[in-house]
Design a protein around this nucleic acid. Structure first.
Lengths: 356, 356
DNA sequence: CGCTTGTTTGCATCCGTATGCAAAGATATG
DNA sequence: CATATCTTTGCATACGGATGCAAACAAGCG
């Protein structure tokens, strides 16, 4: 037994590989590897000795080499676009933390109009990510999605693919849109409008269909159904002006909060209407600005934490069993009623605490 | 010469390694490797033949293996926090695109109160990132920064370390704060206030010092200098209320736009003041909401594109020459004057186009 | 034509870790 | 105490691509 004196170790240069550390300690490289591999066959004593020496000498296993050996990268690719919508940064942050908790580092892939999508998806495969989380509502066709995710765990978050070929997690948009319609009805509105976001996205389609359907069921009149075209303040602003100029309307459901913010400003400041007295406004997502006193926006809160947990769970499931059948997983959200639909004391201007 | 019939290739199973592809084509594995390595010694004909076959057969070099071989990961770690400030998502997006343009994939490391910072920094080293970009204004001490970036290219963006031990790129906060002070002076304000963001951050300190100094130089009175405590809407809101209750003030410089937004809402809606007639408001960053008609906020625009370009350039420089001395690189921004300081036609409510 | 110089190509080996297998050691059983 | 069983350790090799070196080949020159 070559029990090496710790003092002596200090003197030599830092070991950069398991082999070097092993030589210094008089053990085999396998032992070092096993010390760092939970559940591998090694005695607790030796493991402790190695780990302590490793810490002492500032040695860390080379993740790249270990990826090559195990053919597991422990990396999850997060495919993102529309970072300008504040809903996403917080989702991504939570997601990346959730993935980290189960040992997956997040590699971000920004898909934008400017970037070369093909190349991005190629990178996804080149880097051998074990899992892919797709948050981008847009841009990617089902076919390229399937290609990009072929042979690895994959989850769509906040979007779905109708044919159920890929697992998805989302807020229950249908429930949400119905809740908004019900709320409009409950506060006595009769002529309601919908302002759409990005066309052809599942979020938008689900919200629109559910809302329109529910509005009809409740016997309210759908005065406008406007294609905002994108989820932006400007689109909301423009759409609201259109509504203000057109058929009388006493409540508007914007497909998300950013649209609603733009819409509200247009209605109050450009069109001179009072919210909610003349016209009620609701959004979707419950991003931070909905809590700002100026907006105090009624909205449907996406269960972000639950969505993240579910997404991580689904990924772990797929990693454990690659044959797992895809599933859609809509999660319940919550209607948050604020002054933009029910009015209230504007004097006190309660400043709601953040809930991050 | 074993010129293989393309048709025949089709029949076999897809090659997953260079060796397999090589065998299929009757060339050596080295040849395949060289075909994918720009500047390596291989005839144009053979390279073409191999690349075409690779495309045909959907073969791609394994990035992990190549990292191990070359000890270059072609990955840049981006250390981030405060994603809730909309300034950062857009910066990150541009940065990640800029890095991609030079062949670096971005690996995101979220540093937040909740997450285990040590572990994150460890991961930075484990994954052998070639370069580190640190955007997080907070949390990290100079010592841990140096440890995390030891032996690799590193750039701080939007923060600096006084001792010049790490290269940094930032907006020229001093120029910006002076410009705001000059502007307040130019529009005839005399009693001005400063609302700070995160204490101890270089952004905040530079802006505060420069502003306070310039205010004195111009003979204006600094009526308040409030510690907002963080860069948030709430902090701005609270600070503004304090100002409204305290010594008379006719202009406020908030350390960033989010603070300013909260402050403006507090001043107009809670304190009943008119902006800019009673009190002018300015922010810093030029995030999207400054263009919203409701805010139309005078601000100092950070040269994000230039900062990204510079950061990428500095990283390339360090990669080419690891001995490169660290440098600070403040870049000039631009004062953007809007209604929050000069007033103007509120009727037309011009909706400025986005400039992304 | 013989020799030099330059270009292509393949061979062999290395990058740093993981792991199947067998040897060695420890513990239990009869 | 000998043998069977289980645990711990080391050896050897694989993961997939990069690259120094030498062989093979082509071109240039006197």
């Amino acid at each position: 037994m070559t029990k090496t004196d710790p003092e002596a170790l200090q003197l030599r240069h830092k070991p950069r590989t398991a082999r070097e550390l092993a030589r210094l300690m008089g053990v085999s490289q396998s032992a070092v590897s096993r010390a760092f591999t939970p559940g591998s066959s090694i005695s607790p004593e030796l493991r402790q000795r190695i780990l302590r020496a490793a810490e002492e000498l500032d040695y860390q296993p080379n993740a790249i080499a270990s990826m090559l050996s195990t053919r597991r990268s422990n990396i999850a690719g997060i495919v993102v676009s529309e970072m300008q919508n504040p809903f996403y940064p917080s989702l991504i942050e939570k997601l990346s933390r959730g993935l980290q908790r189960v040992g997956l580092q997040s590699l971000m892939f920004n898909i934008t109009r400017g970037s070369n999508i093909e190349e991005q998806l190629l990178a996804l495969r080149k880097y051998n990510v074990d899992a892919v989380v797709i948050i981008s509502a847009t841009v990617l066709s089902g076919a390229s999605l399937r290609w990009a995710t072929e042979g690895r765990a994959a989850v769509l978050v906040n979007r779905t693919i109708p044919d159920l070929s890929l697992t998805s997690v989302s807020c229950n948009n249908i429930e949400g849109a119905r809740a908004i319609a019900d709320h409009f009805y409950a506060i006595g509105r009769q002529r309601v409008a919908y302002v759409a976001g990005l066309p052809h996205t599942s979020t938008n389609l689900e919200r629109q269909n559910a809302f329109v359907t529910r509005v009809a069921e409740l016997g309210m009149r759908l005065s406008h159904c406007i294609a905002g075209g994108e989820y932006s303040y400007e689109a909301g602003y423009r759409s609201a002006l259109e509504i203000a100029r057109g058929e009388a309307t006493d409540a508007v459901f914007f497909a998300n909060d950013i649209l609603a913010a733009g819409g509200m400003d247009a209605l109050t400041e450009a069109a001179g209407l009072r919210v909610p007295e003349d016209i009620a406004v609701a959004g979707f997502d419950d991003v931070e600005l909905t809590r700002w006193p100026h907006y105090s926006l009624t909205t449907f809160s996406q269960p972000v934490d639950a969505m993240v947990d579910k997404a991580v769970e689904l990924i772990l499931g797929q990693l454990a069993n690659p044959e797992l059948a895809p599933s859609h997983n809509p999660l319940s959200g919550e209607l948050i009623v604020r002054r933009s639909t029910i009015g209230g004391n504007t004097e006190r201007l309660p400043l709601e605490p953040a809930n991050t």
